Simulated scan of single mutants.
Amino acid sequence: MAIPVSVQCVGLITLVAILVQTIAVALTFVYFNKVLNTMQDSFSRSSVSCLINSDVEDWGSQGLGAEDRKSDPCWQVTQQLHHHIQKKMTDRFQREMSITVRNKLTDVLPVLSPGIRGVSLPKVAAHVTGVVSSSSSSSSSSEPSSTGGSRMIRSHLGERIRSWEGHRGLSFLQNMELRGGELVTPTAGLYYIYAQTYFRLPPTGETEQEGAQLVQYVYKKMSSYTVPILLMKSSRSVCWPRGPEPGLFSLHQAGTAFLQHADRLFITVSNATNMEMDGRASYFGAFLIG
């Protein structure tokens, strides 16, 4: 009878030991789980407070030196986040400003060459420049529209400028065509048109000639109407130079006009023989804006 009792005792002791170990493990798990949750909550609160705690702004007033602030983990987190946000905002601002400035320059300065990297021109645009040649840079074609007795009536005022460069130097043609000194519009729309002509009046000494009238005209010619239509004109009264140096003068004008498909633009001036066809001084152009 002693053997069975001993086996029962051993089994009971083993069962109690397993039960006690299980309870201890369970209690230990519950305890550490609670501690872990407490640490997570504390860490979350401290992380959020690093971002929204107003005390961060008062570190200087609390007497904390630079070394103390640098050793504070919360200060390091906020500083790194601040620098990161500042860098992102600066990069975005510079990128947006670069695009805005580039677009403004393209609108205001159509003289920019289409070959410049990153510069996009309007879909329809042209900038043509004067051509210096041994022959006269202008033509006095008067294009008579009718005759009254023996007197010719001109279809436009001034002398037409025909020698324009459209492909070299600062000039370009973007979906527009240059024919015989005329810019041909490929599509109907509102165009911004500009022109400048440069004059060099030679000195004449002491003469009876007191002054000169410089006039610049911008015309459009329509296929449905035989007589060119004056769009703009600019004039200037100047004194003829009396000293040894020539007189230098320029006329500039710009404006908008609605043009139809295949309309043509051309420039005429007074005193065409005194016009200097330097491509940086005498030019005209147009581009579609709407």
Rank of each mutant, 00 (worst) to 15 (best):
S120W: 03
H156M: 00
P202G: 04
E177H: 10
K123T: 10
H127N: 04
T226F: 02
A126Y: 01
G189W: 01
A188V: 00
T207W: 01
W164I: 02
R151G: 07
Q196I: 08
S136W: 09
S141F: 06
Q209K: 15
Q209I: 13
P202M: 01
S142T: 15
L157D: 15
Y198W: 09
A195D: 03
Y191L: 05
H156K: 08
V119H: 03
G166C: 00
T207D: 13
V124A: 08
P203F: 07
T197F: 01
V131F: 01
Y219R: 10
E182R: 15
T197R: 13
P228L: 00
A212L: 06
P202V: 02
H156S: 00
E159W: 05
P144D: 14
E182H: 14
E208M: 06
G211F: 00
G118N: 08
M176F: 05
L173E: 13
V119R: 06
S134E: 13
L183V: 02
E159Y: 06
R179A: 00
G180W: 10
Y225K: 15
P114V: 01
P203N: 11
S145R: 13
E210P: 02
S120V: 04
L112D: 07
I193C: 07
Q174M: 08
L190W: 04
G158A: 03
L178C: 01
G115E: 11
A126Q: 02
R179K: 11
S150D: 14
W164L: 02
H156I: 02
V184F: 08
L183T: 11
S134P: 11
M176S: 09
L173Q: 13
G181F: 02
T185A: 00
P202R: 04
Y225H: 15
H127S: 09
P202Q: 03
S136F: 00
I116K: 13
T226R: 13
S223F: 03
E165P: 05
S163E: 10
R160P: 04
Y225Q: 14
S140I: 12
L173A: 08
I153N: 13
P114A: 00
G181E: 08
H167G: 07
P114R: 11
S163V: 06
G169T: 11
L201Y: 09
S150K: 14
A125Y: 03
S120E: 01
A195N: 07
R168E: 09
G205C: 03
L190Y: 06
G118H: 07
V128M: 02
Y198R: 12
V218R: 14
T207G: 06
G205S: 03
P114N: 07
T204W: 03
Y225T: 14
P144S: 12
Y191G: 08
A125C: 01
P228H: 04
S135H: 14
S224M: 05
G180Q: 15
G205Q: 11
L157M: 08
R117K: 06
L201I: 11
S171M: 02
Q196A: 05
S142D: 14
R151D: 04
R151E: 10
S224Q: 12
H167R: 12
G211S: 09
Q216C: 06
P114T: 05
G115I: 10
A212G: 10
R160T: 10
R154F: 01
E165R: 09
E210M: 07
Y192A: 11
G166W: 01
L173P: 12
I161V: 04
G189C: 02
G166H: 04
S139Q: 13
R168A: 06
V132A: 10
S135R: 15
P144R: 14
